[in-house]
Simulated scan of single mutants.
Amino acid sequence: MSDVRPVIGFIGVGLMGHGMAKNLVTKGYPLVVMGHRKREPVEHLKSLGAREASSARELAMACDIVHLCVTGSPQVEALMRGPDGLLAGADPAKRAGTIIIDCSTSNPVSTLALAAEAQARGVHFVDAPLSRTPKEAEAGTLDTMVGAAPEVFARIEPVLRCWAGQVVHLGPVSLGHKMKLINNFVAMGYAALYSEAMAIARKAGLSIEQFHAVIGSGRMRSPFYDTFMQWSLNHDENAHRFTISNAHKDMRYLASMAGELGAVNPIQADVKNLFAAMEAAGQGERFVPMLADFVAGINALPPANG
């Protein structure tokens, strides 16, 4: 068996991607990154030994396994298709069986379409969306849920374990993205529930600290609760860096998936609409824990830590 490691490509070295890419290069994988609007993470990765490609096509020509960690399906589709896209650069005659791993939270309908296009080019398209936060990305302890054929998963598992502490292979392509949307519905549902519950508590004469003294020490405490509450308790905006616009996007994707399945989703519709309202109010770039401030405002209350 060859000891030569595959060359890894990475597009999207932002809040999550930088830590993931850092773990790949520091754990011995040759790394090629594509330029990012923020130069600092790119330059840092280059200082660790990564090379930079000027386009997705150029990156695909140089890599055996490519990671995408971007906003959603429109961005993934743009990177995959066209004369400068990944599929144009993935040449089966030069690199057999190139694998493209979409770590974004994408629409499963798009994922299946891209997988078919990739297969026609002799390329494998895999979905491996993420759970947890940039802190775990830097530590290499993210969770990922993977949709891939068994033989493809066997090839990429050692690579995934460079940046993930928990890797769950769910089955064929698209199951990762489907499960990720369900996962995010549970998470954003908690965010909506905590925000509304805190507002009601405050109107009833209870403080955030009193709310936390009970919920934060009981059976309903969770890792999500711990990071979510850091904003309301301590004004820490870095504990849970996931934007309202991204949360709303994910809830739109899940609503679309539910519609395609004929599933009844009244609670999810309410959760989606709450994030839609906050984004429509011009607060899409705020982080999810700040939903508590938005719901407080609806209830004629000041921010909890204002």
Rank of each mutant, 00 (worst) to 15 (best):
C63Q: 11
N23C: 03
I244Q: 08
I208Y: 01
E43A: 07
P83I: 14
F10M: 04
S104W: 07
S54V: 01
A263P: 12
C103T: 05
D64H: 05
R121T: 13
G171P: 00
P129K: 05
G176F: 09
E58P: 06
W231N: 02
Q166K: 09
F287K: 01
D226C: 05
V7G: 08
L24P: 00
R155N: 02
G72K: 12
D102L: 10
H177K: 02
V152K: 09
G82L: 04
L86W: 01
K249Q: 09
V271H: 10
G49E: 02
V186R: 14
L254P: 05
A115P: 03
E209Q: 03
H169D: 11
S110H: 06
A199P: 09
F228P: 04
S207Q: 13
F211T: 00
T133E: 10
G218A: 03
M34K: 04
A154R: 06
K249V: 02
S55P: 14
I65C: 07
T243I: 15
Q268I: 12
M220V: 12
G35A: 06
L86P: 06
A201C: 03
L45I: 09
Q210K: 08
E209R: 14
S245H: 05
E279I: 08
A292M: 07
K46G: 10
C162F: 13
M16E: 00
V32T: 06
H169R: 11
M229Q: 05
R5V: 07
I244G: 07
G262I: 03
Y29M: 03
Y29P: 00
M188P: 03
E43K: 00
A96T: 10
A201G: 09
A62K: 01
A93M: 06
F10Q: 04
I200L: 10
P129T: 10
F185M: 15
M251I: 02
L274M: 13
D84K: 11
I100L: 09
A56G: 11
H240G: 15
D250I: 08
I65E: 02
A296W: 15
R51P: 13
G140S: 07
A197C: 06
N238F: 12
H18C: 06
S174T: 13
I101N: 00
E52P: 09
A304F: 09
R39L: 11
A201I: 02
G284T: 03
N299F: 15
A115H: 10
N246V: 11
S110D: 12
F10W: 02
R39Y: 15
K94Y: 13
V4E: 08
A281E: 04
V173T: 05
G9F: 01
I267K: 13
A128F: 00
K46Q: 11
L301T: 07
M278T: 03
P129R: 04
N107D: 12
G306S: 14
A300D: 14
M188V: 09
Y253H: 15
Y190E: 15
G306D: 04
P266T: 06
S222C: 01
N273V: 12
H67R: 12
P129L: 11
A258I: 03
G122P: 11
L274R: 14
A56H: 12
P30A: 07
I182Y: 02
M229V: 00
K27V: 07
W231P: 02
I244M: 08
G89I: 01
